[in-house]
């Protein structure tokens, strides 16, 4: 079942990429998707039942907007720091505890953190995530955990768990 869902996803991606429905492109796409599924299918660790729950898509849609807004803010922030003649940076690596268990949720959280204001995920060790932060404004773990992860954690948990 899992392999089948993966195959369907790949096939959909192929159809979007080629953007035409003809026998030859369908055959090539089918063969490519089948080979990819055979090789990488075992890494596709998503429960198929979860793919069919509409609530997850609703939260993902909402998350997209929040994420875009944060991303835009991040860019204006970095652009400001780049253009400022005095280069107002105060970098450092901080450690934050994760509250998300699933691997895919963690990966998405790390990716989101990388794209938001002044933060890059450096590593995940067991339950802690290490983040390079371009302007360390506080060294209190409670405060910066909330500042960096707080916006996303609830959404990610609703989408992926």
């Amino acid at each position: 079942m899992r392999y089948f869902a993966f195959f369907i996803l790949l096939m959909g991606l192929w159809l979007l990429f080629t953007f035409r429905v003809e026998a030859d492109s369908l055959i090539v796409g089918g063969i490519c998707a089948a080979v990819t599924t055979a090789i990488f299918g075992k890494y596709f660790q998503v429960r198929v039942r979860c793919l069919l729950e509409p609530a997850r898509y609703f939260w993902a849609f909402l998350y997209l907007f929040i994420f875009s807004w944060e991303c835009l803010k991040a860019n204006l922030d970095v652009a400001y720091r780049v253009l400022h003649p005095k280069l107002p940076i105060n970098p450092g690596i901080v450690k934050i505890k994760l509250n998300i268990q699933s691997d895919i949720g963690r990966a998405m959280l790390a990716n989101s953190i990388t794209m938001t204001p002044g933060t890059i995920t450096v590593d995940i060790v067991e339950d802690h995530i290490f983040i390079h932060w371009i302007y360390v404004s506080t060294t209190d773990p409670e405060v910066y955990s909330k500042k960096i992860c707080g916006r996303f954690e609830t959404y990610i948990r609703r989408i992926f768990e």
Binding site: A74, V78, V82, L83, I89, T114, I120, H132
Partner: peptide, 22 residues
């Protein structure tokens, strides 16, 4: 802006910030 940051920031990690985001 991203490329400017790549030139102006002091170390690898700060440069990566501008390189990824911008």
């Amino acid at each position: 802006f991203g490329c400017l940051g790549l030139v102006r920031f002091p170390d690898v990690y700060n440069r990566l910030q501008s390189a990824t985001k911008c």
